[in-house]
Nucleic acid binder design. Sequence first.
DNA 1: ACAACGTACAACCAATCGGTTGTATATTGG
DNA 2: CCAATATACAACCGATTGGTTGTACGTTGT
Lengths: 130, 130
Amino acid sequence: MTDTDEDRADALFHALSDRTRRDILRRVLAGEHSVSTLAAAYDMSFAAVQKHVAVLQRAGLITKRRSGREQLASGDVDAVRAVADMLTDLEHIWRGRIARIDDLIADASPHTTGDRQPSPQPTPTASEED
Amino acid sequence: MTDTDEDRADALFHALSDRTRRDILRRVLAGEHSVSTLAAAYDMSFAAVQKHVAVLQRAGLITKRRSGREQLASGDVDAVRAVADMLTDLEHIWRGRIARIDDLIADASPHTTGDRQPSPQPTPTASEED
DNA sequence: ACAACGTACAACCAATCGGTTGTATATTGG
DNA sequence: CCAATATACAACCGATTGGTTGTACGTTGT
């Protein structure tokens, strides 16, 4: 919850919010690729791809290692898991809400205690219009 | 895979890339909140918060239902899971890479079959043309 | 009826984004 | 040595973003 964590989350989600970057990430998770090799795969300038790689690297989603004149990029699966964990945290928050609703239902009707599924609708008062 | 899927991924990750929006999402995953209630929690104008809510809604991360003059926002955990699944897919891609490396190691040295670690070096055979 | 409330949206602004071209700097191969 | 290759980075540009204020409109409570 610290400010630095939020900065990191900003960088991670922002890095993932571009389809070219997601594609690059897929490629470098599957195996090392030089920036040139990556650039050849897209219909844009080398500089554009290099900037995408830099964004991914700054977010910590990929690492680079020098090999002669090439920079070989590699996907960092731990960073991907860190993002997945953030989403799991969100799911936990949601589960807490459902648990609270279940408690209310259990309180209102002493029956039906013991079923706690993904729950079709969180609140009984459903009426949508706009 | 499809273009629409990528559009959706763009919207989801973009929506999550702002800390105010992530905070709003946490609140509405924990329980319904009106836009006004949400706006009161942040040091910015009502209009700014309303736009953040709109971004989250367009991405499908939250839904709104009208209750009198209020719009009650609710987090959609299925959308959160959809994002988590995208990250799981990325992890699978990475696992495929590790499996390939393991195969190479197993092929090179008939011994040591059965240890599968995060792998310090990704093998010198970077399969790529130029 | 009508003032207050809750919401939506338009118009505007500075900052950032995703792309471009151009330039500089290593590294490699002939 | 020199040319080609691989990378990095600056400067620029149009589009988008995150914020603002102002306005409009339906709903509610008195």
